[in-house]
């Protein structure tokens, strides 16, 4: 079995799966429990806030130092658009990976850039949304809704940010011509993580924003 082309560090694995890929899948499996716990925390405290503002209904809340009537926090159209953008980015990274595997540099760099832009747009949307909610009276410690909502979506945003940093790193490699087809796995690993971050949002969006 000792042939010169196989690198000694990477003998064929017992399962046939690539070791790094298996590690990412394993990590993702563990991350599922991380987000499951955060989502559970949000659901457990749903409807338990002592004061407003509330996600879907008008309420009494403290704004600029006085009790006033507050409108519902969530505005579905913007976040729906952000969700769509994030979903499309998952599609784009598949196209980029396809380009990397075929050695099509243009396809790779184009779609990978598009993925990163979508990710940045999503983070921008989240920053805008947080600010907007804050001005509507929902501070981090205002009530249980605010705390559990910002904690859950904040951790998701942090994961998206890490994903963007990872994708940008791979993009720089691609621009320098250091992502030949035989190294496409370097993109695939980042893409797997990116899909995961996306899928988590697919759970958060209906459970947090749509479910009343």
């Amino acid at each position: 079995m000792a042939h010169d082309t196989a690198h000694a560090m990477h003998p064929p694995t017992a399962t046939g799966l690539d070791t790094r890929k298996l590690a990412i899948w394993t990590f993702i499996g563990s991350e599922c429990l991380f987000f499951a716990t955060l989502i559970s925390n949000y659901l457990v405290y749903k409807g338990h806030s002592l004061v407003g503002p509330l996600p879907h209904e008008a309420s009494q809340c403290m704004l600029h130092g006085e009790m006033t009537a507050c409108e519902p926090i969530f505005e579905i159209p913007l976040v729906t658009f952000g969700t769509a953008v994030l979903l499309f980015s998952s599609f784009f990274v598949v196209l980029a990976l396809n380009g990397a595997q075929k050695g099509n540099r243009k396809q790779l760099i184009g779609w990978l850039s598009a993925t990163v832009v979508c990710g940045l747009f999503f983070i921008g949307m989240q920053v805008y949304e947080f600010q907007h909610f804050y001005h509507k009276g929902l501070g981090y410690t205002t009530n249980l809704f605010g705390s559990s909502f910002y904690t859950l979506t904040g951790f998701h945003g942090a994961h998206v940010t890490i994903g963007i940093i990872w994708l940008v790193t791979v993009l720089i490699l691609a621009l320098r011509g250091k992502l030949p087809p035989e190294k496409a796995l370097n993109l695939e690993l980042a893409a797997l993580y990116w899909h995961f971050v996306d899928v988590v949002w697919i759970v958060i969006f209906p459970v947090v924003y749509l479910m009343r």
Binding site: S30, L33, N41, Y140, S147, S148, T151
Partner: peptide, 25 residues
């Protein structure tokens, strides 16, 4: 380990937020 530790990670984060950031989990 993979399935249990993320749960305590979140629990510890929530407790830290309660103590240092004024949340009420």
């Amino acid at each position: 380990l993979l399935l249990a530790f993320p749960i305590i990670t979140v629990a510890l984060v929530l407790l830290m937020l309660d103590r240092n950031f004024g949340t009420h989990f």
